[in-house]
Amino acid sequence: MHGSPHTVGDVMTRNPVAVGRDAPFRDVVTLMDRWKVSALPVLEGGGRVIGVVSEADLLSREGFRDRDPDRFAARELPAGLARAGGATAGELMNAPAVTVHADATVAEAARAMARRGVKRLPVVDGAGVLRGIVSRADLLKVFLRADEELTEEVRREVVDRLFPLSADHIRVEVTEGVVTLTGWIDSPEPAPVAERLARAVEGVVDVRCRLCPVAVHDDPH
């Protein structure tokens, strides 16, 4: 992976498993079991994503095995339960699908998941055609970046930019994703900025800022 910000395209799963609108209930279950996934994009017309069917949707269907709601009763049910009588992916899916583009940042995808309460997002192109899928686990991959890679990026993007004249006097150490900045700086003002910028580097778990201003004494002469 390259420097920040990382994009969905860096971490997504390409060529994901998907189903068509008319895929029967049992086929959906079989695919989920075979590929060990908990949700599948639903496609139509050249691979366009029109929805997502999840394990929760399938379990809702099973909950009505002995009492399938008729059309009138379904109107009185919450949106999720109203689909419970469905027998195909198109009837069971959540639609429209919450999607993301490959060039969206990891942070943008994480916010979309949190805001919409979903665990994965189909990745689509400008025409809405499926190009991949990104999960919560994929977004956490940025925290697997090597300490050496993080050290290099913090030095380049934070230390060298904020302290071009005194960068050689500042030490950057990263252990298990935790950044420690140590050294002397001309004034205390940039220290909080350095801490904030280091914390914004993707993959950084925490920052310990130990930058101290050089004591300035009046010239006795």
Rank of each mutant, 00 (worst) to 15 (best):
H6I: 00
V8M: 01
M12P: 03
M12R: 09
R14L: 07
R14A: 10
N15Y: 08
P16H: 11
A23D: 11
A23F: 10
P24T: 13
R26E: 15
V28A: 12
M32S: 08
K36H: 14
K36A: 15
A39E: 14
L40T: 05
L40I: 13
P41R: 05
V42T: 09
V49N: 12
V49W: 01
I50A: 06
I50N: 03
I50K: 06
G51K: 08
V53C: 13
A56E: 14
D57L: 07
D57T: 09
L59K: 09
E62L: 08
E62N: 02
G63K: 06
F64H: 07
R65D: 08
R65C: 03
P69W: 14
E76R: 13
L77F: 13
L77N: 14
L77W: 12
P78S: 15
R83K: 15
R83V: 06
R83E: 06
A84F: 04
G85E: 12
G86E: 11
T88D: 11
A89E: 13
M93K: 06
N94M: 05
A95K: 12
A95I: 01
P96N: 07
A97T: 02
A97C: 03
V98T: 10
T99A: 12
T99N: 09
V100I: 15
H101W: 10
D103N: 14
T105F: 01
T105M: 00
A107Q: 13
E108W: 04
A109R: 07
A109G: 11
A110I: 00
A110M: 12
A114F: 04
R115A: 14
R115M: 08
V118T: 04
V118R: 09
K119C: 03
K119Q: 14
P122E: 10
V123L: 06
V123H: 11
V124F: 11
G126L: 06
G128H: 03
G128L: 04
V129A: 12
V129G: 07
L130T: 12
R131G: 10
D138T: 01
K141E: 14
K141F: 02
V142K: 00
V142Q: 13
L144S: 15
D147F: 05
L150M: 11
T151M: 10
E152K: 11
E152Y: 00
E157W: 04
V158R: 04
R161F: 02
L162Y: 02
F163A: 05
L165D: 08
L165P: 03
S166N: 08
H169D: 14
H169Q: 10
I170T: 01
V174T: 01
V174P: 02
V174E: 04
T175M: 03
E176Q: 13
G177Q: 13
V178R: 14
T180I: 02
T180M: 08
T180Y: 00
L181I: 01
L181H: 00
T182V: 08
T182Q: 08
G183V: 01
W184V: 07
S187E: 14
S187N: 05
S187L: 06
P188K: 05
E189V: 13
E189G: 04
V193P: 05
A194S: 02
A194P: 02
E195L: 00
E195Y: 00
A198S: 15
E202T: 05
E202L: 01
E202K: 10
V205K: 13
D206M: 00
R208W: 04
C209F: 00
C212F: 03
V214N: 04
V214E: 15
H217A: 14
H217S: 07
D218Q: 12
D219S: 10
H221Y: 14
H221S: 10
